[in-house]
Amino acid sequence: MEQEELKNRLSELKDELIDIEQTADNRIFLLCEASNAYGVARFLFEELSLRFVIVTGIDADDCFEMLYHFSNDQTGCMVTVKAFIRDRETPSIESVTPFVRGAEWIEREIHDVLGINFENHPDLRRLILFDDWPEGVYPLRKDVKK
């Protein structure tokens, strides 16, 4: 898909997004609320056939940010869905694993280190922390003591 076409298709998503930012020629950020992230990611993966790269979870003090990175391999354009999870007490977002099987591990990992609940995840067991790691302590959160 060429760059122009990609941009046109992305504008179809306008209703679900807060904003579209473009930081460089081939770096596009789509800002949205957590509730819309599943739909947007699914549109990118299934309708636009972008390649799933990874999810980044960030503790941004006032909210959690989930960054779904996708890549358009024809142009090398990175499309990133930036979803904001405003609820800091019981952070939760819908899992994308049902349609991208490659997301299984990263969602388990984010569950481990940031304590975010992925709804509908098939197998949300511990992945990366050791067996005796205390429950309820999330090493990547900002409020964790060193």
Binding site: V53, I54, T56, I58, E104, W105, I106
Partner: peptide
Amino acid sequence: RHKVRAPSYVNVP
């Protein structure tokens, strides 16, 4: 924030 995704992370599963 610095996020790393190594190739094996998606290849192994």
